[in-house]
Amino acid sequence: MFLINCPYCGERDQSEFVSGGEAHIVRPKQPTELNDDQWAEYLFMRKNIKGIQFERWNHAHGCRKWFNVARDTSNDKIEKIYKIGEQPPKL
């Protein structure tokens, strides 16, 4: 059970949050211009790395805001929390 420091509410128990998978995957602005492979890349392909992973989290049972989390998947340590629209930190 992590503690997650919501950038809008502060530190809360993990049970208040849901994970939204990998961050920084931007929905293509012109999907119709993409061939099947390019669309599949956006739609299906996600990283699953051991180490620091950038993820989206939502404070579902709180302020309902989405934000980004840099989490080390090997020990669940949260290295950095930053807002949607901000660039991933260099870690």
């Binding site: 849901v18 939204g20 931007v26 929905r27 989206r56 939502n58 579902a60 309902r64 805001k65 989405w66 949607i84 629209g85």
Partner: peptide, 13 residues
């Protein structure tokens, strides 16, 4: 509700 919020906040702010 969650899905719509997700699109609003992250894709179409």
């Amino acid at each position: 509700m969650s899905k719509l919020e997700d699109y609003l906040q992250t894709e179409w702010p």
